[in-house]
Design a protein around this nucleic acid. Sequence first.
DNA 1: GATGAATGAGAATTCATTCAT
DNA 2: TATGAATGAATTCTCATTCAT
Lengths: 186, 186, 186, 186
Amino acid sequence: MPRRHDPERRQRIIDAAIRIAEAKGIAGLSHRTVAAEADVPLGSTTYHFASLDDLLIAALEQVNSQPRCAVIGWEDGLTAVGIPGGVPLADALTQLLEEYAHGGRGRIRLEYELYLAALRRPRLQPLAAGCVDEMTEMIGRHTSDLATARVLVALIDGLLLQLLLTDRPFDRAEVRAALARVTGER
Amino acid sequence: MPRRHDPERRQRIIDAAIRIAEAKGIAGLSHRTVAAEADVPLGSTTYHFASLDDLLIAALEQVNSQPRCAVIGWEDGLTAVGIPGGVPLADALTQLLEEYAHGGRGRIRLEYELYLAALRRPRLQPLAAGCVDEMTEMIGRHTSDLATARVLVALIDGLLLQLLLTDRPFDRAEVRAALARVTGER
Amino acid sequence: MPRRHDPERRQRIIDAAIRIAEAKGIAGLSHRTVAAEADVPLGSTTYHFASLDDLLIAALEQVNSQPRCAVIGWEDGLTAVGIPGGVPLADALTQLLEEYAHGGRGRIRLEYELYLAALRRPRLQPLAAGCVDEMTEMIGRHTSDLATARVLVALIDGLLLQLLLTDRPFDRAEVRAALARVTGER
Amino acid sequence: MPRRHDPERRQRIIDAAIRIAEAKGIAGLSHRTVAAEADVPLGSTTYHFASLDDLLIAALEQVNSQPRCAVIGWEDGLTAVGIPGGVPLADALTQLLEEYAHGGRGRIRLEYELYLAALRRPRLQPLAAGCVDEMTEMIGRHTSDLATARVLVALIDGLLLQLLLTDRPFDRAEVRAALARVTGER
DNA sequence: GATGAATGAGAATTCATTCAT
DNA sequence: TATGAATGAATTCTCATTCAT
């Protein structure tokens, strides 16, 4: 019984693609795996997405728009507390990273896979660069200058990368100290 | 034209794999592409390397052993100058990164691809982790404590990653300032 | 010459697989040999059957459903004659085996190959066991108890196996006598 | 350190081949698997056996010569007891089958694989036929006539086959009763 | 004698994409 | 509009055998 009108099918396919990408990596994406995961006919994936690249991009765009929500929630909390005399940025970032790290490695891994995939696929580069820029901009709203924000983003990326690679547990004090060196906080 | 005796066959295959990996990424490695690049029959690659993973690891090990030489050269220079009252570490690292960045993006890209590929392929993880450790240890020889070295490595990783992703040119002053924040140099 | 629409493709592949299995044995089955025999592209066999095992099973199921027809025909004749005071079972079975033996060795061979292949491939075991059970049940309908039927089936299997292995011609009297020992008929 | 003179190497290869065939089936035999199992260089297997078929035959010949020892032991016991007024044949055979069945399925499976392989490979046929003949001859020494022995061998083959296929446990009483029908013992 | 490198064919699968329906 | 059959290239890997050393 083919569901003729299934307006959410496109979205279901994207969601399935994200699940696959988190679980098996970007390289694990294929029309077949996605169709199976989404429980839609094979032809449906090629119908809604002209090529596999299109599907990948749609999935990654959605991934990139979602975690921002979490970060924005974080930022709201930060703002509410108030910057001057409020929570030190290093503390706030440390907490964000901790949540991030504990929120399942799947999502972070996927984000870094995006970075790397972008190195080879030009169409992904704007996405990855936008990711960095957005983060920089957001952090920049809480630093005295943009240069500091850029350094913080680089440091955060490096720290997360190491976290993923080494299986060392998240060391709050160490991360906090590292960030504080850059923010100049004590 | 059967080349029945070819004592350097194995090494030639590894070299070809590195060229492929630099040019097309780790994902571009396949028995076929490597065999073609090395100008050997397809079966030869599977004879010398039981699985593609084995070949990939052999190639990456070789890649990882080479750049160290460059870095060691750098370190020798640094040592020669002498640390106390000598070249500030931030300056030395900045110069190293600059050389690294200008030395063709292929090699850096490959290194970061290694990092990220390790996220999905357990057998690569020791390689990637060893890469980080080695770098940390080396830098640690020029810092007062290891914690500082770890932060520096994270920062360097983040900076190089951004460099690769954004196509922004290498900004010596900015990088130098970022590093100085961590080393505490003025 | 692309035959894009071919509604009986799946069945043709199964038929080809049976021909191959009869002619070259189960070990002779491969995507390639079947595709060539069925005159379809290689990819077509893997499209319709996710794995070679699936194809093998589909083929053997079809094989197993066919000879039953012959046996059922035999059974009908037997019933018509009537058991009490009718044709002795040993005579009827002898005639069945003779027809079976003369009906080309391909089919019997294939059946015994199924048995033996089941020893190594768990997925085939239900098929082979079902084959034995069905035969037992059918013969059981003409014996006083099931134990006798089981012994008869074992004996029949052994006799056919010897027939295949030794190239001795079918000896009606000998087979009849062997069966009669078990049925208790004189 | 190549062992130049290793007079038992040939035998070690055969033994390894038997282990492989028992564990993975005849289809699991290859120069490589055998060389690995025997811990000899690959070239050694092709040196001592011109083709894989030669190796297979050598292995199966050895297999066929070994279990006979067990059977001969059994026969000796049987003879000792004495036939006339001694142990009924059905009992003795039942015990033999029981030991056989409990002695690990690997060996029986291999024997039946030999039968089946013989169906397709002419060079194996003498081996398989000889196996049957030998068994017939041996049993014939304890029956009044050869016809009875032939029937017994067929029945035994069928019973063992069913045992392997159905995973039903060995039922001593049932087997004994089946054999007794043929031997005429009560 | 003995060995291991070499080779080309073939194995099972997976796949992106096209296209008739 | 939607689908699933179809296809041919490409994937990794195994292998029997040959042959230079």
